[in-house]
Design a binder for these strands. Structure first.
Lengths: 152, 152
DNA sequence: ATCAATCAGGACCGCAGTGGTCCGGATAAC
DNA sequence: GTTATCCGGACCACTGCGGTCCTGATTGAT
């Protein structure tokens, strides 16, 4: 089902909220503003910090602050930060034994172009595009967007 | 991680194998040829039948046969048949209560264009493209596509 | 008519990953 | 020093997936 983790969904909401004010915001504050349970918000924020999307300020009057503008954050980055690298995981996991030994897993590596296409599509859309329902990526055709529109 | 179910991976292998001979093939036969455990092959085939990608012939000397040529099967169809409709499941599930009530799930429906972009990308690539490393959608050779064609 | 081969459609189970919570420690403003 | 806040990890319930098996229904061959 190509499921995207719910955490990623939360992350988008949190990031957009974080962009609302240029000021630092605490995780309880964001939790209250978004309705997402506080511990979960904290977890998301922590993960986003590791992904270098937000910066944290410790201590009293601390909080989180956005690193880049929404326009400069493709969702691909958010997904990568939360869910790890974007890949449809063909036989990437350690089970290369029954695969290689038979020598007939002819599809090995064939998913790469598919992954690539998805990565492209996900890089073409930024958080700013999601905030407003508009999609400039499809108007000013980026290379990826042109590929996509050419496909229809 | 945008994980794709392993069953879908199997399905691609099975479908390509099924295209090898124009003849009907039994699931034990395909299992032997692909190295995938027989019950799993059967399950995949059954699911693909529901998805109208293959036809089944019951009884002795029965088996499965491909409905369309590989060129006419976009991976989007395979994924849809195995994993269900392609959607990154934003708040699609019934939990619209905490979402709507707060009125701040501003992201509601915002994932649609993302889903759309992915669907597009997935429709542009057919099983035939995966079989041979070529990708007509990327006539301008992407790094990945070049790697693939160089690999054979 | 009987038998064997094959698909159909379930039920079933173990396991991993996700969503979600909580706690002790470090850090910095007041 | 006290307090507010982030940090890092441990922890658990639950869902869904991968995988197996069993009992019918169907059809060709004997």
């Amino acid at each position: 089902m190509l499921r995207l983790s719910k955490l990623t969904d939360y992350a988008v909401v949190v990031l957009v909220r974080l962009a609302g004010t240029g000021d630092v915001q605490t995780s309880p504050g964001i939790a209250a503003a978004t309705g997402i349970p506080e511990p979960t918000v904290a977890k998301v924020l922590k993960t986003l910090t590791l992904g270098d999307l937000v910066s944290s300020q410790r201590g009293a009057r601390g909080g989180y602050r956005l690193n880049r503008a929404l326009e400069d954050i493709p969702i691909a980055d958010v997904i990568a930060a939360i869910d790890g690298p974007i890949a449809l995981t063909a036989c990437v996991d350690g089970s290369s034994l029954g695969c290689e030994s038979q020598g007939l897993c002819a599809m090995r590596g064939r998913w790469d172009p598919v992954n690539d296409a998805i990565r492209r599509a996900l890089t073409a859309i930024t958080l700013a595009d999601m905030q407003k329902g508009l999609l400039p990526a499809f108007r000013t055709p980026s290379p990826a967007a042109r590929l996509l529109s050419a496909a229809e």
